[in-house]
């Protein structure tokens, strides 16, 4: 099976129903994408498929097809991803950081699709990403900060 991840081609020999999360982490070794629940409830595993945020823990790798996969390791190369990462550092959004690859991916997808998101749009895009450390206040500020940048 051929996968396009962060612009590079990868050949993997895995069953079709293996979630993309485990292909990316265990087979390819890109461990920035996190496992948090396995049931699409926490968002820690969020990656982009052709720029759209999806939960890789529930995405069978066989369903990816030719779509371009972007992970936290590669999202900095996109304009929205770079803006979000910078805003996250400027405002010190991060605490333990474990949920943050997912937060950054969801926020970057939001910003790419909606350059000036209001609170409602932020809720709609980010409510699927849990943060046990409670960084929500700053995530909200971070997205607005990035939108202004």
């Amino acid at each position: 099976m051929d996968l396009k991840i962060n612009g590079a081609d990868h050949q993997v020999d895995v069953p079709d129903n293996m979630p993309l999360l485990w292909v990316v982490r265990d087979v390819i070794g890109l461990t920035g994408t996190k496992f948090g629940c396995g049931i699409a409830q926490c968002g820690a595993c969020t990656v982009h498929l052709d720029g759209v945020a999806v939960r890789s823990c529930q995405l069978p790798v066989g369903a990816v097809g030719g779509r371009a996969i972007t992970t936290i390791e590669g999202v900095g190369a996109t304009p929205a991803g770079a803006k979000i990462q910078k805003a996250w550092l400027d405002l010190e959004v991060i605490q333990c950081g474990y949920c943050q690859p997912g937060q950054v991916m969801s926020a970057a997808a939001l910003l790419a699709a909606n350059p000036q998101p209001d609170d409602e749009a932020i809720d709609a895009a980010m409510a699927g990403n849990l943060c046990r450390c409670g960084t929500y206040v700053r995530i909200r500020e971070g997205i607005k900060h990035a939108a202004r940048a």
Binding site: T31, G32, E73, W88, L89, E92, G97, Q100, V104
Partner: peptide, 21 residues
Amino acid sequence: VHRIDTPDKVTGKTVYGIDVM
């Protein structure tokens, strides 16, 4: 001051225990 651990966390480079390979 800015935290010293965040730059790696924002790019997914930080190696948590679960990321050890």
